[in-house]
Design a binder for these strands. Structure first.
Lengths: 336, 336
DNA sequence: GAAGGCAGTTTGATCGTTCAAACGATCTAG
DNA sequence: CTAGATCGTTTGAACGATCAAACTGCCTTC
């Protein structure tokens, strides 16, 4: 393996100076077209690629975004996060950015990691996921002035009009509202909601979509509760089905609960009772259960837009002005 | 934000030279304990962290491993890959390594990306996934002498005794063999296998586990085929169940197929027909289907061991000697 | 025709770290 | 008592890029 060529090698081969080569790469418009082409040709011939570390050292930019990978708190579920990370990688790459992962088990642990990465100059910005009310991470990041976006709204007093920081999220209420309207139209007016115990921002938001859609349609239905487990959801749905013979459908806060509800319906002799889930996991797909698809690709696009502007290739976070600091992605109901 | 301290700042504050500070960090054993402690104290006080880019520039090592994130070929399924990446991140971090993602849509595209990352000095090694026979990526990497491991065996003539490159994989045959033995013991001798069409290395390997376990037990059973889709698997299993009334169980090559088989069994009035899957996805968990768990954490550990040695903290790939160039992880049957 | 502006290019300095070699002090052997 | 080895430390150079300022022609302008 021959030693890779440097900017100097390119310069001498093209009969120009270092800086001109650098300009061809970074600010081509200032170089005379003739010179530019010649240098470009030499770059191709030699197979020159700028050395990332040298560039980072000089510019004090790493062109790298860090993202954490350990869903320690309820937060975003596996598949969605996975697709989000993937989309982020792809779109970041188109803007000349890299994605670096880091692992941590607790919020404090995560703060320590971010600290290392930022002061070590390894990352320019962070994407955090699974935020919760009073999250120490956001406080820490704000205090240090480190650019970041969260996947998940801040759940503060008014995160739209007076946002604490940049955030991207999926409009859970819109998702369950769409599911509710769909069931109202195709099945009947008695649509139940199977949700998590109250208090999780995400779950409450999704419940709101159901209740608003019901009210708008002049319908009303029962609210059932279960932890995020198939077995428990099945039990909850089963007892509702026996006590209340004429349910027309169940909107569920997650795919796990939807599967539980579906199994209960099958067992109760109503295999065609329409049920909807949330996240569109492959489990829902396998069982032919309708589900709300989060569109993580759009979430990723939103995150980058907030961090880097519509088309920028450097981190330059949008200022957190009212109504301007977030991207709320409208999910899509996959009907099965 | 005050400018972060450099090695120079630490040196003057501790009354020593740059190099001594560097030694305290990188080769503490050569520094006199007294001096070492003093320097360490100053490091803590100032909150000094080495600047990654400067270090990389000088040492010509990035301490970063690249991994691709786009399963364009059958390869590893979502969840497993996800857990693998996560485990890799965690374990790499313990060895002072970072994980950087890159996206690509085709093998050629992936080669171009790796090229950029390697010659730009961004990564020291690569982990590739979803390898197939005659994979252009492995050829390219070998030719360039770039350190890499594949998650997935090379599927060459003899990848154990005469390996083309380092690889880690899950012992698929061992997994299905365990599942088969379990069903033989608990259900009966007539155990069918529901697999993919022949020709995929992974699928054939898993089939071998079933057939060897059957032979060893003196039993025999039918082999069914389906693409990796729930609906198709359901149809295949359904026709087998009607034509052959006394099946005792079905070992499936994947969770998708297992779900299809399970649904067929339920429809055929045999809801308790034991079925096993592969990958232990949350779909299988939700439906209470036994499945073979891949243990991606151990795969990750194996990958790092091959690349960096048992405890090393720099990339120094093991030479590909007979029987020494791979780690084959024994999966575990999760009984439900 | 001298002064000034402008476009395109070059030069020297710099980012923060580690390498390689040199250094001084103390100890050991002959 | 001196040569050589050993230990812990310091010094200068280098890694490869970009920044900021200086420079060179050439064209305007008064």
């Amino acid at each position: 393996m021959a030693k890779p060529p440097t900017v100097e090698d390119v310069a001498t081969a093209a009969g120009v100076s270092r800086q001109t080569v650098s300009n061809v790469i970074n600010t081509p418009e200032v170089v005379r077209p003739e010179t530019r082409d010649r240098v470009r040709r030499v770059i191709d011939e030699l197979g020159y690629r700028p050395h990332a570390a040298a560039r980072r050292l000089r510019t004090r930019r790493s062109s790298t975004i860090g993202i954490h990978l350990d869903p320690y708190a309820g937060g975003i579920s596996g598949v969605v996060l996975d697709r989000f990370v993937h989309a982020l990688t792809e779109q970041a790459s188109e803007r000349g950015m890299r994605i670096q992962l880091y692992a941590a088990r607790t919020p404090d642990d995560e703060i320590a990691r971010m600290q290392e990465l930022v002061t070590g100059g390894e990352i320019d910005a962070v994407v955090i996921t699974g935020t919760f009310h009073g999250d120490p991470r956001t406080r820490w990041l704000l205090q240090r002035g480190i650019p970041f976006v969260s996947f998940g709204r801040p759940w503060g007093a008014d995160d739209v009009a007076d946002p604490a920081h940049l955030w991207v999220d999926v409009d859970g209420a819109a998702g369950t509202a769409a599911a509710t309207r769909h069931l109202l139209e195709t099945a009947g007016p008695r649509i139940a909601f199977l949700g998590w115990p109250r208090g999780s921002g995400t779950g409450d938001d999704r419940e709101r979509g159901w209740s608003e859609a019901m009210t708008a349609a002049g319908a009303s239905g029962v609210r059932l509760t279960s932890e995020d487990s198939v077995a428990q959801a099945r039990a909850a749905a089963a007892s509702a089905l026996t006590s209340d013979g004429d349910l027309d459908g169940i909107v569920c806060v997650s795919d796990s609960l939807a599967i539980g509800a579906h199994l209960a319906a099958v067992a109760a002799g109503r295999p065609d009772l329409p049920v909807t889930g949330f996240d569109n996991t492959n489990a829902a797909e396998a069982l032919d259960i309708s589900s709300v698809e989060q569109l993580p690709e759009q979430v990723a696009a939103g995150a980058l837009e907030l961090l880097m502007g519509a088309t920028g290739s450097v981190v330059a976070p949008r200022r957190t002005a009212a109504g301007e600091a977030h991207v709320l992605v409208e999910p899509r109901l996959i009907v099965r």
